[in-house]
Amino acid sequence: MAIHKRIAFGHAGVFPAGAFLAGPVEPVGDFNAPARPDGSRPQQVDKDTGLPLWQVQVIDPDPEAGKKDKAVTVKIAAAHQPVPPVNETPFPFTPVEFVGLTALPWIEDTGNGRARISWSLKADGLAKPGTTATAGRRSGEDGKAGPA
């Protein structure tokens, strides 16, 4: 069978009504690693690429999305902290498009004796919606993105 762990999707396949950042890009803490002397955790590293993992909270405005699917986390594997596109709207949420978006299904125990399929989303980068110049690049590879 040709399906590996992660399934590749285009951005529109996961977010047909678009996607909006609801917060900053943050490092993913590695809670399986021992805590540092100051109590902080090291940053988690992507198992596939060896790159540090970052995460963003995303709002999905799709009217068909379920209540539990309106806000999701997307992880990004990148050498440097990805820089979101500039928000050119009057709203507090930044429109975004994910490059190299993949999904990994997993079973979520809802605690009431029922389980549901959930999805772990990971991308190579993020870009301003509709831009094609960044479609094949990871965040940080164009020399413009870096630590925020």
Rank of each mutant, 00 (worst) to 15 (best):
G113F: 08
V86C: 05
H11E: 10
R41I: 08
G143S: 07
D69Y: 05
L53I: 03
T102L: 04
N87C: 10
A135W: 07
E64H: 13
K75Y: 11
A22F: 04
P129Y: 11
V45A: 01
T49N: 04
V25Q: 04
A22C: 13
H4D: 13
R41D: 00
I76L: 08
K144V: 09
G140M: 06
R6N: 11
Q81Y: 05
D46G: 07
W106K: 14
G18C: 09
G66S: 12
T110D: 11
F15T: 07
H80F: 09
P92C: 09
L126A: 00
A115G: 10
A35E: 14
A78W: 06
V74D: 00
G50A: 09
A19Q: 11
D62M: 04
A115F: 11
D48P: 01
V28D: 02
A103L: 15
T131G: 09
F98E: 07
I59L: 04
G13N: 02
V86I: 12
G130L: 06
R36T: 01
A79M: 09
D62I: 08
P85R: 14
P82F: 12
G146A: 15
I76V: 15
Q81F: 03
K75P: 02
G125D: 06
D124Q: 06
A65E: 05
P129G: 11
R138Y: 03
N32Q: 12
F31E: 10
R114N: 11
V99R: 06
K47R: 11
V83I: 10
G136S: 15
K5F: 12
T131Q: 12
F9I: 11
G29E: 13
A103D: 13
I59P: 00
T49S: 15
E88A: 15
G10I: 01
F91V: 13
A148G: 10
E26Y: 05
S139Q: 01
G136A: 15
Q43W: 10
L21E: 02
D60K: 06
A71Q: 10
P37N: 08
P27R: 09
A2W: 13
L126S: 07
R6Q: 14
G39K: 08
A2R: 14
V99Y: 05
R41S: 08
I3F: 15
V45W: 01
P42C: 00
H11C: 00
K67N: 13
R116Q: 15
P52V: 10
P16N: 12
G10V: 09
S40A: 14
D62P: 07
P34M: 06
I76S: 02
E26P: 07
S120C: 03
A148H: 09
H11Y: 09
V72C: 06
A79K: 13
G18H: 08
